[in-house]
Design a protein around this nucleic acid. Structure first.
Lengths: 256, 256
DNA sequence: CCAAAAGTGTTTAAAATACACCCATGC
DNA sequence: GCATGGGTGTATTTTAAACACTTTTGG
């Protein structure tokens, strides 16, 4: 189907397929080259950027919906997802955005479910950056990663959603397998530390960090080292998922 | 308006007033005579109990909706409310419940927005037990407090919602003014400790608890003591809200 | 051989825990 | 006067923080 056809059908008949008034917005976190990244879409015409999002099928679990949406944007199955907040301000004014969108596209419509008010459920997603193949949706022209410190101008309240998700990620650090989901299978201690530092937004002492994380028992050190830097080669580690989950049940005690 | 009239109007025309497919369920916590309590409604005919809940007006902020609903159930304004989770299983089967409800009432209806699937947003509410005047809604015959350890059989997934809310309350203890909202203006140290013990589900050392809580600076000791027990009269305390909020920003560090 | 960054261990300070005695009150 | 539970202080253990030297690697 042609893109325009898909779009006008979405505006005209989407309400038969999806629950009205409810949308999902996802903040997809990745970690690459020692930087925390977020996956964003460039909205057609609006010029601003948007969070990957979508709607809930009439008989679908909301968590499944979020998984389905992100499978389309990333190519990944079984993404680690958590709902973190519902954004329900009646003045979120999705109406204007969606009307302007159609206008630019050259389609005229007086009524559409897309002009209604939307309550949006925010999800955080943790993915392995290296495995993602970014794919724009029908409303977007691009899909790209951004450094968390270099977020472009965003539509609606999406920047607010993003900031709130980041705060949630920080709170989750001691209770969810954040490292496991954001890093590749094997990684070095400095990489893991940088991940913690970026999320917590503060520097940690290298030696104390290593001791603390080793003492939790959540890591297994490999024989292999990461060569290539002009310095001593750091060991690779991988997570001991069994111990990781056990440790998380009790909470891991990194000060926020 | 007569109760039955109100009810049939709700089933027939509620969708003009409220957002479809979305409901709110509140877990209202109170603390009285050293027990953590939850406010429940006895559903008409079903015999089981339910959380206080309701729907969102078409142009209303969801948080306002929760406030409005609880004002009706408790008589209280400006209740401390927090959303904590969205329950979105498509098999929550509110349909059966609502159909059965009407049947028992002797009303016949083939179609109603109330037979649709509902996604429910869970809220926790912290109230001063002594100020609440429980008031049933149009679906209920009673509204009463229950000890958190003596919860009766509940409709749908409401017991699950309640348990999840309790867990959330525990997580919030270090970051939200839980004591301030659950206790009366003045209270004794043993009362405060009991509140913490009940929420955390473990015993705390009396002397260490006192030191720790005093050191945070969130309390002001009054000259007055609580007489009446056959033992030394404990001092009354009240919260220093300014310091309390400051301490909460940093997190208060009671081990969960 | 030099710069850069990783590996490792000890010392010190702070926080949590365990524990004991005295004090007011009502019966 | 005695049982009950509240007020207060100290010693000990555990945990977190501060800190320095040695080692490996690439250029």
């Amino acid at each position: 189907m042609k893109a325009d056809k898909k779009l006008s059908e979405h505006f005209l008949k989407g309400h038969e397929k999806y629950l009205r008034h409810i949308s999902i917005d996802c903040v997809v976190f990745g970690f690459h080259e020692n930087e925390l990244k977020v996956l964003l879409l460039k909205a057609k015409y609006a010029g601003k950027w948007a969070l990957p999002g979508g709607f809930i099928l009439t008989e679908e679990h909301m968590d499944e919906a979020a998984g389905r949406i992100l499978k389309e944007r990333t190519g990944l199955d079984k993404i680690f997802l958590q709902q973190f907040y519902v954004f329900s301000d009646p003045d979120r004014s999705t109406k204007k955005i969606n009307q302007g969108f159609l206008k630019n596209l050259g389609i005229k419509l007086d009524k559409s479910w897309m002009f209604d008010r939307f309550i949006s459920v925010g999800y955080t997603a943790l993915v392995d950056f290296t495995k993602v193949i970014p794919e724009p949706d029908i409303f977007s022209e691009k899909c790209e990663w951004f450094n968390i410190h270099e977020i472009p101008e965003m539509i609606l309240d999406h920047e607010n959603i993003l900031v709130k998700a980041w705060g949630y990620l920080r709170l989750q650090l001691n209770f969810q397998p954040v490292g496991y989901n954001l890093l590749t299978t094997k990684f070095t201690m400095p990489e893991l530390q940088k991940l913690y530092e970026t999320i917590l937004e503060r520097n940690l002492d290298r030696r104390n960090f290593q001791r603390k994380i080793i003492d939790t028992g959540i890591l297994k050190r490999l024989e292999e080292t990461k060569k290539g830097g002009s310095h001593k080669a750091p060991y690779y580690y991988k997570f001991d998922l069994r111990n990781y989950k056990k440790a998380l049940r009790a909470g891991m005690g990194f000060e926020l």
